[in-house]
Design a protein around this nucleic acid. Structure first.
Length: 109
DNA sequence: TCACTGACTTGGC
DNA sequence: CGCCAAGCCAGTG
């Protein structure tokens, strides 16, 4: 038992997110089966601190805002990482987020 | 065992 | 258009 398959699932999905793309907590939660479980996804990300394999910078809220940037070393760390992958960030949110949005329940089909 | 919190989402006022 | 309340699951006190 992996403490929580939910967490492992989240890590797996986030890890599957291609560079230059971003996903949302709700998308992952919905992919796992709990739309409102988006909070759990954020919880998993909090635990993801010990998982460098989990690109949490590609995980944003449904508004495309870097909600978790505060959890990174620097407030600009997350933004810089995304910009480094080709994702434009403005005002702490992903520009044309709709085009960068990567839904595991659709793209992964 | 119960209650609170948490990187969210949606709906109502 | 902006703020408040409710719902979700899991973990910790």
């Amino acid at each position: 038992m992996a403490q929580s398959d939910f967490f492992e699932n989240v890590y797996g999905v986030v890890r599957l997110v291609p560079a230059g793309r971003v996903t949302t907590y709700g998308a992952i939660a919905a992919y796992l089966g709990s739309k409102r479980g988006a909070r759990m996804v954020g919880w998993a990300m909090n635990n993801a601190h010990g998982r460098p394999d989990v690109p949490a910078q590609r995980v944003v809220n449904r508004n495309g805002v870097l909600t978790g940037k505060n959890f990174f070393g620097s407030s600009t760390q997350m933004q810089d990482l995304l910009e480094s992958e080709g994702v434009k960030i403005k005002d702490d949110q992903v520009v044309v987020f709709q085009e960068y949005f990567w839904d595991p329940g659709i793209e992964l089909l």
